[in-house]
Structure formats: C-alpha cells, structure tokens
Design a protein around this nucleic acid. Structure first.
Length: 274
DNA sequence: GCCCAGGTATAAA
DNA sequence: TTTATACATGGG
C-alpha cells in the first residue's frame, strides 16, 4: 500500500480496491454521509475524516500520519486483499460472480464492537435514513464532544440511563433494548472484546442473551463490529434469494468469507428487484 | 393516509 | 418447532 503524506492529509495511491459508495452506502455503517461534491465525511473511533477520489487514488483529508497508522489503516482494513477474497469465493461458488461484480470495491470496515451492536439493535424493523437520525441524536445527546462533532456514546454512559431518559432519542420500542445491551456490556456480562477470538457459536449465544438481539443482529454485530468474516446475516430478502438464484448456498459452504459473499448477494438481489 | 423498514418478543397452533 | 402479531416511529 503506497501512500503520499501531504500537509493536510494522506493520499492512498491506486486504491482501486476501495470504492467509497459501495463501502459506505451498503448498509454496514451509519455514520458516513455522501456530500454534494461526492466526497464522504464520517466519524469513527472518536475521529472525523473527509475522503474523496483523486486522479491517483483517494485522499484522506484531515488525516494525520499517526492517525492513519493507529486508526484509519485498520478501520478501512487496508491490509486485506479483497480482490483475492473475491477470487476465492467465486472459485468456491461460480454463481457469485455477477453478485460480486455488482458491488466491486466493497470493504468490510473494522467498526468498534459496541457501536456496531448498538447500531444494529437500532436498525431492526427500521429504514436507513431514520436509523442514521436516531444514531445521530444518540451521539449528540450522550457522546463525547470533540471539535465540532460527537463520538459514539460508550456502553458505560448509556448503562446509567433509564428508558425514560432515552425518550428524546425517539427510538421507539428499541429504547429498552439499547439499555439492556448497554448494562450487560458495561457490567461485563457480555465481553465484546473476547469475541474477536471466541468460537463463533459461543459469541452468538452470548450476544443473544441481550433482549432485542436475535439471530440477525448477532450476525451483523459479528461481521461488522468484530470483523468475523465467516458470520452470515440473513434477512427475508436473502432467504428468498438463497432459495431462488443461489440455491444450495449456505454459510458453511462459503467458509471463512461467507459474510463477504453475503454482502455480494444482498446488494445484488436488492438491485435487481427494485 | 398508507405502506413498510437489513427484526424480535411473545403467544398461540 | 413453526407461524402469526404487535411493536414506535417516520421516510417515501
């Protein structure tokens, strides 16, 4: 990975394996927004960044060299070769080729586990614009304030709130789920940081102890918050697609990168039917 | 107004 | 074990 260090940011050279729209707007994250000029701005790990294409690659505006090394390089998963993963998946399952081509340059971000868990609790039976709105209010209401923006509130902070105090969030029936998750995580009953290496079946069972966390939210947390690429979130659309266009395709059959294949299939089936 | 959203808890069959 | 329904809210 070649980089150019400039005075106001860092340029990634030949970042053709990183498509901004397919990465930020695929439904895996909720704090990145496309701007009118085509750039994306987002907040992660308590830091803010603006990112846009250049003729040579991508420019990370406002990114200091040490922030790149300690945060963004990891967050964008820049040391993983997604093209090689795609090749492996298509060899394993040739039917995936069209689906993979429909979302080229997607990367699975290394989001923080608590933020992912909380975000996907909020996402249930909800639409993306409103999910983003709720998360935005959550951060502005209880997140740590930085220079003009807010970080994602910790489980510890949220664990001290009551459902009533969370009313301004307008999260509806999900408010008590958020509180339950925050209390179990803050209290140490659910050890998210252990889930990077625990057997995935154990992770699923632990996560589903939280009220409001079912199979789908658990898989999303594992895939997007813990970078467990073998996790395989399946919703009703996916079930239909798997039964029709991808019959016989299962998480077990797809192996260690099932979650990436899932993103191919999800995006592909959403596009052809809308 | 109406439909429905990257689901889940709960109660029935 | 599988199938129906309510759930809070608001975007389109």
């Amino acid at each position: 990975m070649e980089i150019n260090i400039k005075n106001n940011g860092i340029e990634l050279i030949a970042a053709d394996g990183f498509d901004l729209k397919n990465t930020f707007d695929c439904g895996q994250c909720f704090r990145w927004d496309e701007q009118p000029d085509g750039s994306y701005t987002g907040i992660a790990k308590g830091k803010r960044l603006r990112i846009y294409p250049t003729d040579k690659g991508l420019f990370l505006e406002g990114c200091a060299e040490d922030d790149f090394g300690s945060s963004w390089r990891d967050y964008f998963d820049l040391d993983t070769d997604y093209d090689a993963i795609k090749t492996e998946l298509v060899e394993l399952c040739p039917a995936l080729k069209c689906a993979a081509d429909s979302i080229s340059g997607i990367r699975i971000l290394r989001q923080e586990p608590w933020e992912a868990l909380c975000s996907f609790i909020i996402s249930q039976n909800n639409n993306i614009p409103r999910i983003k709105g709720i998360i935005s209010r959550l951060c502005e209401g209880w997140g740590e304030k930085h220079d003009g923006y807010f970080g994602f509130p910790s489980a510890d902070t949220l664990s001290r709130l009551s459902v009533e105090e969370l009313a301004p969030l307008r999260a509806g029936f999900r408010a008590r789920y958020i509180i339950d998750a925050a209390r179990r995580v803050a209290g140490g009953e659910i050890a998210l940081d252990d889930m990077y290496s625990m057997p995935i079946a154990d992770c699923r069972r632990e996560l589903m102890k939280i009220v409001g966390v079912g199979a789908k939210v658990a898989e999303c947390t594992l895939l997007y918050g813990l970078h467990r690429l073998e996790a395989f979130p399946v919703d009703v659309w996916m079930k239909k697609a798997l039964a029709q266009s991808f019959s016989g395709v299962t998480a077990e059959g797809l192996g260690r990168y099932a979650g990436i294949a899932q993103q191919y299939i999800f995006h592909y089936t959403r596009n052809i039917s809308s």
